[in-house]
């Protein structure tokens, strides 16, 4: 889940009777499973909430290149290097589709980028954790992409057309990412003693941060209630987290790895696993910019943007010269 704690209007969901005719028609269309397109009328709150959500998702894809990029130059085989590069390239592509989807709501990519770099907009907490061994490339694919998919698959049915369509394409690629992550984990878990140790260590470090990706319980959140009424959020955070644990626990067992939770246990009655909550204090610290890599990540993005300024300006100046020369010739 690459969007966390997205604020909506904060006012609670209106009933159809409380809405004026325009808003009522909009809501009824969503209730009937219809799509909202860029030129359609939409409430201001819907537009703003979507910009926050899609923007945060896009930023997560961009910052998310860094922890995996950390291992591209140390990938152990040519094939692993190519697969990892292709995956990180997909993430840049996802960022691009998502910024384009956000642009249909009237905000530019440059504006969103400035808001990321100034710290005004956030990206997923998970990318503030370090990748320390090659097994982390497995854990990121298996757990982080696995958690992201939980949220992104339902979002293919979201009410906003451009977002839903971007998500269809993203989901296809994400499921490949998750499989490649699991494949790395299998090799590591079935490898030599050092590799098995790396695999268990990666699971130990990424388990709770992965659970945090879904955000704290939002059963009582007015923001989530509004987003769900608008179908830009399809499930509660707890539902998705439970689904993720239920899917992942048997996979860990298959790998012969131990999930670092002594309370993890199958609950026959619920037909689901019981599990421990992550440390939410740590989560809020990370959101405040106190994650282990928060400062490094923002420095890296700011440096890339500042170092690239002359390139962007140069290419723009050239395009203008070309246009001027063409006009002069005509």
């Amino acid at each position: 889940m690459y969007a966390q704690m997205i604020k909506s209007t904060g006012k609670g969901v209106k009933s159809l009777d409380e809405m004026d005719p325009e808003e009522r028609a909009f809501q009824e269309r969503i209730n009937a499973g219809g799509k909202i397109e860029p030129k359609d009328w939409m409430p201001d709150g819907y537009r703003k909430t979507l910009i926050r959500q899609i923007g945060q998702h896009a930023h997560s894809e961009i910052v998310g290149q860094l922890p995996e990029g950390n291992w591209i130059t140390r990938a152990p085989t040519l094939e692993r290097k190519a697969i990892l590069l292709a995956k990180v390239q997909d993430e840049a592509g996802h960022g691009l589709y998502l910024y384009c989807a956000a642009e249909t709501l009237g905000v530019s990519r440059d504006q969103l980028t400035r808001d990321l770099l100034s710290g005004k907009m956030k990206y997923s907490s998970i990318f503030n954790y370090p990748t320390l061994t090659w097994a982390d490339m497995g854990a990121v694919g298996w757990l982080v992409d696995g958690a992201a998919i939980m949220n992104q698959v339902p979002l293919q049915r979201t009410s906003y057309g451009p977002y839903a369509r971007a998500m269809v394409r993203i989901c296809k690629e994400e499921s490949f990412h998750q499989r490649q992550g699991f494949d790395i984990m299998m090799k590591m878990a079935n490898g030599n003693e050092a590799q098995r140790k790396m695999a268990q260590d990666a699971l130990n470090r990424f388990w709770y941060p992965s659970l945090m990706m879904f955000g704290p319980s939002d059963k009582e959140s007015v923001h989530s209630a509004q987003s769900m009424a608008w179908k830009i959020k399809m499930n509660t955070n707890d539902e998705l987290r439970q689904k993720f644990v239920d899917q992942t626990a048997p996979q860990a067992a298959y790998l012969g790895l131990t999930i670092p939770d002594e309370h993890l246990e199958w609950n026959e009655e619920r037909g689901s696993y019981d599990f421990s909550e992550p440390d939410w204090e740590e989560f809020f610290d990370v959101l405040q910019g106190n994650g282990p890599c928060s400062v490094d990540r923002m420095e890296a993005r700011n440096k890339a943007w500042d170092d690239g300024r002359w390139v962007r300006e140069g290419l723009l100046a050239h395009a203008e010269k070309k246009r001027a020369r063409k006009m002069a010739a005509e």
Binding site: A92, R109, G308
Partner: peptide, 11 residues
């Protein structure tokens, strides 16, 4: 990887 001047160049 991840530090090009624009997103299109990263890709």
């Amino acid at each position: 990887c991840g530090v090009a001047p624009v997103l299109e160049e990263d890709i």
